[in-house]
């Protein structure tokens, strides 16, 4: 992997981001290779979600540069940013399904850009996508608010993969789910990444998930990536903070 001198799918160079006096990202450097599955770990509030939002161009870093497949996201025009976003599918931490639309419109949103029309085709498409995440056609016409948390998460997952993105971001895909469902979601992510040949970045607090899902793990601490290495090396990282994290959770 990466033996050729290929451009990374995602590259962050010295990314800084503060909110008022609060420093969140304090010089993040990170590369994600094409086809790789990376897990980002780190304590609550260390800026993991903020980092993903900076990559997507939803938040503007104070300084530093972010490249998507060799193209710069930071400082790109609104139109270019939108074009670059076509690479991505994102599962937001809280699902972020649109309350005002039924599930099937939510799931096919990336295909329709939110327009009506093609209803029959889109419903079929939605049913297929929902099946992939283990949801039946009975949820098609429901509003997100009448689904359970786990079902919302799976519907959001279906929405994130609908347009066959080549990069998938999962922000805490298993938090708040029961262990059985969490296991299912983890296997689903592995399967999706394999099937679609996508690059994946997953945020999780769950070491077991990290080991199941990822080739590589990066540890974010106090606004910096302080360690990264293969998932198998987590136990002998030789890094105190990683050790604490691993022991604390096992």
């Amino acid at each position: 992997m990466g033996q050729h001198n290929e451009t990374p799918m995602i590259e962050l160079i010295d990314v800084y981001k503060s909110f008022g006096p609060k420093k969140v990202l304090d010089g993040v450097n990170l590369k994600v290779r094409r086809g790789e599955s990376l897990t980002v770990m780190g304590g609550s509030g260390t800026g993991k979600s903020v980092m993903l939002k900076c990559i997507l161009g939803l938040l503007k870093p104070d300084s530093g540069r972010i490249f998507i497949d060799g193209e710069e996201m930071t400082g790109a025009s609104g139109r270019d940013q939108q074009r670059l976003r076509a690479h991505f599918g994102m599962l937001f931490q809280g699902g972020a399904l649109f309350d005002s639309l039924p599930i099937w419109r939510n799931v096919t949103f990336a295909l329709t850009n939110g327009r009506g029309g093609h209803a029959r085709e889109m419903r079929d498409k939605a049913a297929m996508l929902l099946e992939r995440v283990g949801l039946g056609p009975e949820v098609l016409d429901l509003r997100p608010s009448s689904l359970s948390g786990g079902m919302q998460k799976r519907a959001a997952l279906a929405r994130a993969i609908a347009h066959q993105p080549d990069v998938l971001f999962f922000d805490e895909p298993t938090t708040g789910l029961d262990p059985v469902l969490a296991g299912r979601i983890n296997r689903l992510i592995v399967q999706l990444v394999k099937e679609m040949g996508a690059t994946a970045v997953t945020i999780t607090h769950d070491l077991h998930s990290a080991r199941t899902i990822s080739d590589r793990v990066a540890m974010l601490h106090q606004g910096k990536v302080i360690w990264d290495g293969p998932a198998s090396a987590l136990d002998e990282s030789g890094n105190e903070i990683v050790d604490d994290f691993v022991k604390g959770l096992e």
């Binding site: 939002k53 161009g57 976003r85 076509a86 937001f92 931490q93 972020a96 649109f98 309350d99 850009n113």
Partner: peptide, 21 residues
Amino acid sequence: AELGTMRVTEQIDALATLRAD
């Protein structure tokens, strides 16, 4: 209230990510 809820539940971020301005 509606846009504010969409903002704090990341629905506005999701819109942008799904390429709807």
